[in-house]
C-alpha cells in the first residue's frame, strides 16, 4: 500500500515538475496573465466594482468562484480536524485540580473523589499542569480583546478600501477567542464559543457565500454576478457589485473565524475539549 502511494506521489510530482517548463517565466510581460487580464483589472476595476482596493475586487468579484472554493477548503480543513481528532470525553480517569477562590488554596481531587459542581463560583477548575494566579495576563487580555474584535470588524468592512477583507478579519476574530482561551482556560472559551456554534457559523459562512451566488442565478444572471442583486439592494449595478463583495466577505469571515477556533480547540486539547493550552 505504501509502495503504491509512493509511486503515485512520485508520478504526480514528476509530472508537475516536468510540466513546469511550459509555464511562462516569472514576470514575463508576454504571459497570458499579463497581456489582457491584469491590464483589464487595473483599468476597469474601480469603475466596475467601486472598490479602490483592486485585490479585493479581483478576489471577491472577478475571481469570486475561486474564493468560494477557498472558503470551502478552510471549512473542509476544520471538518477534517474534527473527524480526525475529536474524542468522546471519558468521565474520570485522571485527577482534577480545583482552586478554592476565597482562600486561594489549590485542591487535588483524585479519581473517584467528590467533585464540585461544574458552574461553582467557589471552586474553579484548573488544568492539571498547575497554573498560578495570572492577574496581569488576564486583565491585559480583557482590555485588549475588545479592541482586537473591533479592529477585525473594521478590517472586514473596510476590505474594499484598504488591505483586508474576510480572511484577515476572520483570523483576527479567531485570534481574539484563542487569546481568551490561552489567558483563561479552554473550558471557559468553549463555554463562550461552543463547538456547536463553531460548526454552525462555519456552515453559515459558506452558505452565505454560495447563497449569494445562487441568488444571482435566481435573479437571472451568472453565478456570483452581483450586478443582478441591484434591484434587491436598491442601488445601481456598480454599487451592487460593491455590496456583493461585502456580503461575500462577511461569509468568508464567518467561515474562517469558526474554523480556526474549532481547529484550535481540537488541536490544543488533543480532541478532548477538556484541558489544553
Amino acid at each position: 500500500m505504501r509502495l503504491l502511494a509512493l509511486i503515485a506521489v512520485i508520478l504526480t510530482g514528476g509530472l508537475i515538475i516536468f510540466q513546469t517548463g511550459a509555464f511562462p517565466d516569472f514576470g514575463d510581460a508576454n504571459a497570458p496573465a499579463n497581456t489582457y487580464l491584469s491590464t483589464y483589472y487595473l483599468e476597469h476595476g474601480q469603475a466596475d466594482t467601486h472598490a479602490p482596493n483592486i485585490v479585493t475586487s479581483v478576489l471577491a468579484d472577478y475571481r469570486g468562484y475561486d474564493t468560494m472554493f477557498e472558503t470551502t477548503v478552510v471549512f473542509a480543513a476544520g471538518l477534517a480536524c474534527f473527524f480526525l481528532l475529536r474524542r468522546k470525553k471519558v468521565p474520570g480517569g485522571e485527577p482534577r485540580i480545583y482552586r478554592h477562590m476565597p482562600t486561594g488554596i489549590t485542591l487535588r481531587i483524585a479519581d473517584g473523589g467528590k467533585l464540585p459542581a461544574e458552574d461553582s463560583e467557589v471552586f474553579r477548575r484548573l488544568d492539571t499542569e498547575f497554573v498560578p494566579q495570572q492577574l496581569i495576563i488576564k486583565n491585559t487580555c480583557r482590555i485588549v480583546i475588545p479592541f482586537i474584535q473591533i479592529f477585525a470588524l473594521y478590517v472586514i468592512a473596510h476590505g474594499h478600501y484598504s488591505p483586508g477583507g474576510g480572511f484577515q478579519g476572520g483570523v483576527l476574530l479567531a485570534a481574539s477567542i484563542i487569546l481568551y482561551a490561552i489567558s483563561h482556560d479552554l473550558r471557559r472559551a468553549i463555554r463562550r464559543f461552543s463547538e456547536k456554534t463553531a460548526a454552525l457559523m462555519g456552515s453559515l459562512g459558506v452558505l452565505i457565500y454560495a447563497g449569494t451566488g445562487a441568488l444571482c442565478l435566481l435573479m437571472g444572471a451568472n453565478f456570483l454576478n452581483y450586478k443582478a442583486l441591484a434591484p434587491l439592494l436598491g442601488v445601481d449595478a456598480v454599487m451592487a457589485r460593491s455590496h456583493g463583495i461585502l456580503i461575500v466577505e462577511i461569509g468568508v469571515a464567518f467561515a474562517v473565524m469558526a474554523m480556526i477556533i474549532w481547529i484550535y480547540y481540537n488541536l490544543s486539547s488533543a480532541g478532548k475539549h477538556d484541558e489544553g493550552l
Binding site: 498560578p132 495576563i137 491585559t140 482590555i143 485588549v144
Partner: peptide, 16 residues
C-alpha cells in the same frame, strides 16, 4: 499605546 500595554505583558508571560 497598544504595544505599551501588550509588550510588557508578553514579556511577563514569557518570563513566567
Amino acid at each position: 499605546i497598544f504595544v505599551y500595554i501588550t509588550s510588557p505583558t508578553a514579556t511577563h508571560a514569557i518570563v513566567d
